[in-house]
């Protein structure tokens, strides 16, 4: 699929893409707080699953920290494991 899109279509697609960036790197947050559910909620789906970094643009290190924060928040019922 990647090879197919290499032509003019691919260029067109690329033009409309806004570059993703890691918000935690940009803001230089010292750590990701599991109590801050408002921030965490923007990194999970409506169903309560965590979004992949390829969709959010989060860097690898912060994605790992985010995962830990989400798991902690779920443990103490600040976030749900699964939204019905």
């Amino acid at each position: 699929m990647v090879q197919k899109g290499k032509g003019s279509e691919h260029v067109k697609y690329k033009r409309f893409m806004r570059k993703k960036f890691c918000r935690f790197c940009a803001e230089k947050t010292p750590f990701i707080d599991y109590k801050d559910t408002r921030t965490l909620k923007s990194y999970i789906t409506e169903r309560g699953k965590q979004l992949p970094s390829r969709m959010t643009g989060t860097c690898a290190r912060h994605q790992r920290e985010l995962t830990e924060a989400v798991k902690r928040a779920r443990n103490i019922a600040l976030l749900s494991f699964m939204e019905k």
């Binding site: 010292p30 750590f31 902690r72 443990n75 103490i76 019922a77």
Partner: peptide, 15 residues
């Protein structure tokens, strides 16, 4: 009926 204890890391302690 539910509890959680977490050890704070260096950066969290500084904050």
């Amino acid at each position: 009926f539910k509890f959680m204890i977490i050890k704070l890391r260096k950066k969290e302690v500084i904050a």
